[in-house]
Design a protein around this nucleic acid. Sequence first.
DNA 1: TCTAGGATCGGCT
DNA 2: GCCGATCCTAGAT
Length: 201
Amino acid sequence: MVEFEPMQRRFYQRSTELVARSLLGKLLIRTTKAGLAAVRLTELEAYLGPSDLACHTFGGRRTPRTEVMWGPAGFSYVYLVYGMHHCLNVVTVGEGHGEAVLVRGGLPVLGEELMRERRAGGRGLSDGPGKLCQALSITRTDNGLDLCDPESGLYLGDDGTKVPLTEVRSLPRVGVAYAGEAATWPLRFLWQPPTTHPVTE
DNA sequence: TCTAGGATCGGCT
DNA sequence: GCCGATCCTAGAT
């Protein structure tokens, strides 16, 4: 079984923007009965809590759905969008902040065949939040997992890949036109690897 | 209870 | 490039 060094809780207990940017190039590793699959993250978005109109916790909203967003950093927040797609987020900063990073896309590095099966003929394996969740078999039942613990079946790890700041682009977030000025904030972070980085180990 | 609308995707024009 | 699918969530009655 391949294992990677999991990101520690401290990694997530920083500003949401910094966590989003720092997650570029990291590995999202998923283990299920069907096997192991992993992607290298290339696209993330920061959601800045009560002051961010695009964020589910805007204005201090605290509901059953958003409960884990108010909890400790390093846990998963998974919700259903448009009645059919799941989105994976990572809670940041710490308890009471309501901030998170949306995982929007990555490149397959392990278990590509398994991902292809799960995507069942769709185009692209993990180049979108809904596709990534489908390829890694992530649903609302995976809400509230501890992403610092490989035992949870879903965690983030580091294989030493470096992402130079000069290769990172920041743009406005996708699909939040309703959020007024917040829709223009450059909180979407993209990394296009110069070449594909193979998994070392 | 009821209702409007959504952090998307894929099929069709 | 446009549009419908699909059903949960949150806020309003």
